[in-house]
Design a protein around this nucleic acid. Structure first.
Lengths: 197, 197
DNA sequence: AATCAAAAATGACCGCGGTCAATTATAAAA
DNA sequence: TTTTATAATTGACCGCGGTCATTTTTGATT
């Protein structure tokens, strides 16, 4: 029987997470260094790794939280009325992930974990995202706005695939003036959701 | 005006690449260590990085070569007659990439580079793959086997997206007895290519 | 208050990728 | 042959993530 964590431990973990979030805000995700986190939190390096499996584990919490916040925004208001509106709703998520390759890599690494490690925030955020998408698609199917020959779950996973695709392409070029991921997404979703009578 | 490379240099590079390929064959891609490569090749560590930008640069050559070999096999014979046959033709590629996360990560990192660095083998392999897919899709469209309302280029890119999607999911679980990527791909392609009259 | 076992934290140490000023080999010019 | 510019190689060094045997702290028990 494992004992409940002591107060000190919870405080330490919270401090580590706060400090990490601050550094990310100052330097971005790519600028995050474990040594900086522990230095500013006033703990030893080993302590961080007793709270988080590895650096990715820490990032997963930070990013998971952020995705949850984005989902709050996405969920507010009525469901999208048609495919174009749905595409537009995904723009904030694309903008967020598109800002730093670190986010993309991490989400990809956790993106199929829907079963294992369900206690992780990032996993919960994934489940929530796919659930929300599925609900939206169901509504659009009922309204006759999109194809009805496929289950909404499959359509939702397909959208995830296209999201990652446009992001992958986005990170492969020096994105100076190129088409942002949000714009690149449209033709795929149009073709994917188009009604097939 | 940059001079032509000396014979010595070409030999060194070839040796490094051979040694690396051997180690990969023995230990797999994840087992490749730069220090091992230079030790067995009898050169200093710095030499490797004067021949390849970084470890990924070396991997890109090894993996690019392998993908080219796979494409040779794919291109042999007649183009697929229908969507299912096309799906089956992609299985060897999925099996190869699915064997090691290192391959997946690397290909993803280069997967949109179709424009920049066209001299890299891995980039050439990408162009070749998408070209081949496009050609096949065009044939299938003409034969009325798949949807004709979208350009074959878009359909080809969509297939890439689904390939990466099923691979991503594949790497996210302890793949003991789960459905292999090749089987997971079918429903997506079926829905993606289905004729829309 | 003294004792003790589990929890929490520590920091020296390691693995491994990548850098760069210094050194050596090469081939063309004098 | 000697000189000289540049191509090629070297290896000590660094950054950074991650480990683990050891030490310190904590809260319950006597």
């Amino acid at each position: 029987m494992t004992r409940a964590p002591q107060k000190r431990r919870l405080e330490t973990r919270a401090r580590l997470q706060e400090v990490a979030a601050t550094i990310v805000q100052e330097q971005g995700y790519s600028g995050l260094r474990v040594e900086d986190v522990v230095a500013r939190a006033g703990v030893a390096k080993g302590t961080l790794f007793s709270h988080f499996k590895d650096k990715d584990g820490l990032l997963a919490v930070l990013i998971g939280d952020e995705v949850m916040r984005l989902l709050d925004g996405m969920e507010a208001g009525d469901p999208p009325q048609d495919a174009d509106e749905l595409t537009a709703r995904l723009a904030p998520h694309l903008d967020y992930v598109g800002q730093d390759r670190v986010i993309f890599d991490l989400l990809l690494r956790y993106s199929g974990t829907t079963a294992a490690e369900p206690d992780e925030v990032v996993t919960a955020s994934f489940i929530r995202q796919v659930t929300l998408l599925t609900r939206w698609l169901q509504v659009l199917q009922t309204a006759g706005q999109i194809r009805q020959d496929q289950p909404p779950e499959l359509l939702a996973e397909g959208i995830q695939a296209f999201l990652n695709h446009v992001l992958g392409v986005w990170f492969c070029m020096e994105h100076d003036d190129e088409t942002p991921p949000a714009r690149a997404l449209a033709p795929y979703l149009q073709a994917w959701l188009q009604p097939a009578p």
